[in-house]
């Protein structure tokens, strides 16, 4: 490493001897273009000095001004966010309560309506029952009447039929040349009619 320095120095010296007219900067550039400026130890104190100053200033600025400020801003924001979140939670709770109240009102109204409907229905049912009973009674009366008339018709028709049958039988017996016995004919017709009528 130190041989490098010596070499650099000698080449620089050679350059300056060769071309005294050229500026020192040109010679320096030519010299260091062939080596690594990073290994030029003559510039180390300079760089280190300015670096230490830079780091000191930067550290002071960051630790005194910038970082506390940013930390404060971030924690403020965090606080604001958690506050907002809590407020939002509260509002949510309120909304939930309002919804529950609304639901309850709705359910009450529904029950009320159901009651009214049931009452109406009972009333209607009662009326309906009465009407049906009335109709039933009327129907029963009419049926009885009809039955009676039917029975009358039936008895009268049975008597008529017996009369006709007796006459027909008497005539038949007579036409066959027999002598109609009134009592026997009656008996025969009656016995015959018993099976058919009624």
């Amino acid at each position: 490493m130190f041989s490098l320095l010596q070499e650099a120095a000698t080449t620089a010296a050679g350059h300056t001897e060769e071309a005294a007219a050229t500026a020192a900067a040109g010679a320096e550039a030519a010299e260091s273009a062939s080596g690594m400026p990073q290994l030029d130890f003559s510039t180390f104190p300079n760089q280190i000095f300015w670096l230490v100053i830079t780091l000191g200033v930067l550290y002071w600025v960051l630790s005194r001004i910038a970082l506390p400020r940013i930390a404060a801003v971030i924690s403020d924001r965090q606080g604001a966010i958690t506050g907002d979140l809590m407020a939002a939670e509260e509002f949510k709770q309120k909304a939930k309560e309002a919804e529950a109240a609304y639901d309850k009102a709705l359910a009450d109204a529904r029950v009320e309506a159901g009651k009214i409907v049931a009452a109406n229905r009972a009333e209607i049912q009662k009326e309906l029952d009465a009407a049906i009973a009335r109709a039933d009674a009327e129907i029963a009366a009419r049926t009885a009447e009809s039955e009676k008339r039917l029975a009358e018709i039936r008895t009268s028709s049975a008597a008529d039929a017996r009369e006709v049958a007796r006459d027909v039988t008497g005539e038949l017996v007579r036409s066959f040349g027999g002598k109609a016995d009134e009592a026997a004919v009656d008996q025969a017709v009656d016995s015959r009619m018993k099976g058919t009528v009624q």
Binding site: M1, G35, M36, L39
Partner: peptide, 8 residues
């Protein structure tokens, strides 16, 4: 490599 190229 750099040392070999430029510094040795």
């Amino acid at each position: 490599a750099l040392l070999l190229m430029f510094a040795v």
